[in-house]
Design a protein around this nucleic acid. Structure first.
Lengths: 213, 213, 213, 213
DNA sequence: AATGAATGAGCCTTCATTCAT
DNA sequence: GATGAATGAAGGCTCATTCAT
């Protein structure tokens, strides 16, 4: 997909390995539940490498988020799937948006890191929470509010639209950040793309027509 | 046993002060983000008092949860409001349930501690997560699934019912555990009972008829 | 054995229960490995009772030692067995002495507490070590040295006599204070009176004629 | 690698200083009576250094034991003295063995640490007691039992041989672990190699011919 | 005479950070 | 560019002792 695939790719730098390790761990466990030793061990680097390359755990977290964003763009361009040939209906857009959000929350591997780090930041905030929201969450959520606004035929900035949109975001946070709880409450629940698909269908249907049909 | 109940009641015991402090702090910040020094300081007690009265931080957490449950029962008997004079419709039941859940998630003070500690446990689990779920969350959620099952006219144990019910629980977790994020994303958003009422209306309406009406 | 056995014996006082509990625990585990909570729990008393009745853990230890001495005198008057009808030979005296020492080191129950506390004090000393030695160990050991002196036909205060006598004391300390180690090194080794008897025979024989006969 | 071996050697690493300090303190006072602060202070290191280099106090204890073994091998190769030109008699072997054991129990400085730590472990056991016995004590004791077996003309695994061998081990434990008691009971008693020599002679004589000659 | 409650000192450990090479 | 070593702050916990009835 990138330039010359024939050339031997260099081994990733320590910095990149740290970013990968950090992104994966922060995505899976949240900021507070990851130590820089966890990260440097996973990256095969010295524990001092984190501070050497990134200054602090906090800055590494911020950069890991951006790194995860880049990796997600490559591996899973948003919105998923080929560009549509004709304009999507609001219902289709909602489906695409939810599907991408849940799909990433359920993803294993780099494609999901970005969404997962961002969702984690909301329940386990760092001092950079506000900036993270402004740069990473608010734009995403405004997009969702635009779609929901169309469906509800209301101003995207109106309270009803924001309330409903928040409930949709809440679902993604729930399945990612409460995974141990879900696994215990619903034994056999599968955290895979099939489930993401099913939940998307279910929620889109509810938004459009209610749960009772 | 003492004279008139109108007279000033005796000052609460250290044990009670610790339970109150612990419940409030665990509710607000979660298990890992509270130190026993925070708790003992807030309670005006020595740091060793936690161990003396409760054995460990973990035990204090468990007892604070039960303590919060008792306080919630006194101050905010469930379901809120007077007992109905006639059987409630499923729609009314759903409204009551959601209203209570959100009301407690938004409550300031003891009435909300129990719900808040339990919601926190899901995103910031302790070793007692499974037991907490079995004893405190699962019954509550099964009740919700019963209601949703009636509305959807499906088996309460069926996947669709559980999926929708989870989305409703997710909303309560979201507003409580992501409060700093919400406050930044939606400046002016009020965490009060009026908002709980409004959100309840909104979500009930969506469940019944969809967001687009 | 004591006065009127027909009269109802009073329940032991808290003080006595503490002394019993302390003696048993100090005998079994040594000063440092017993907490005053262990003692008060075993005695069914409040943890403050130790300091109330005895001032400190250290004083309780001292008094428990004396208490244990009294109990040992009652239950197992030294030297064991009926008073001899004719003067004992030095060899008989050595046997009696060693048998009593090992028997008490191996005893379960009050009869052994005194010897065991004293032996423990030597490997796990308290600040009262010197006094304990002067009052409880030195007299006992001087007696042994008298016997050994007769057998060796040397001055009881001479170095050879003291060296050999110390080796005999060492054996009793070893079997009591290194019990976990002995149990692992010699599986099946029985800490009972039969073993005390056998070891006594073995050691007396060695002292008299050497191990090789 | 560097210039001449005669020149001043580089200062020992923190790790080595910690091992030395730990070995010396554990040898002198036993596991429970030494704090990691004692060790790090003595080594001139930060208290966190113990955890950094060794993970835990328990691990440090295990490694200090091995470290002490290495130092003992260098400074006091076993068996002491030049290799014999002709096979030793059992009596000579017994003398060598006892002399080494007591000599190390009495040693001041690194040559004695290993024996002393191991002897301490028996009266003040750590969770690694069984392993310590299997790896460090049992082989040593089996060797002694082999010698005693030859002298007694009995199976080295027989009860009489084990009983007598235990009494000899007991003596070494006694002089090391009960040192404060011995110092008070026998003022003027010297814990030096001359005394080790004398005690060896005394005990060997007793084993061979009895104390009464 | 006795006790439940409370305390302060100390313990081992964890962790992000800083130092020196 | 990178790292092994070292550090200080903080955390939960234990325990003998003291306080207030």
């Amino acid at each position: 997909m990138s330039s010359t695939a024939t050339q031997t790719s260099k081994p990733p730098s320590t910095e990149d390995r740290l970013l990968d390790a950090a992104a994966e761990l922060f995505a899976a466990r949240g900021y507070a539940n990851v130590t820089i030793r966890d990260i440097s061990d996973k990256a095969g680097a010295n524990i001092a490498a984190v501070n050497y390359h990134f200054g602090s755990k906090e800055q590494l977290h911020a950069l890991a988020m951006e790194h995860a964003r880049q990796r997600a763009l490559k591996e899973d361009p948003y919105p998923a799937g080929p560009p549509p040939t004709r304009p999507l209906t609001p219902e289709q857009k909602l489906r695409r948006h939810l599907r991408a959000m849940l799909g990433r929350a359920f993803a294993t591997g780099p494609a999901g890191w970005y969404m997962q780090i961002v969702l984690r930041e909301m329940v386990d905030p760092t001092p950079a929470l506000k900036q993270t929201i402004d740069a990473n969450i608010a734009p995403h959520q405004r997009k969702l509010e635009g779609i929901v606004g169309q469906i509800m035929r209301e101003d995207p900035d109106s309270e009803p639209v924001k309330d409903i949109s928040a409930a949709l975001l809440a679902t993604a946070i729930f399945y990612h950040s409460c995974r141990p709880a879900v696994e215990h409450m619903r034994p056999g629940f599968k955290f895979d793309q099939g489930t993401a698909e099913r939940l998307t269908d279910r929620i889109v249907a509810m938004v459009l027509d209610g749960a009772a049909k």
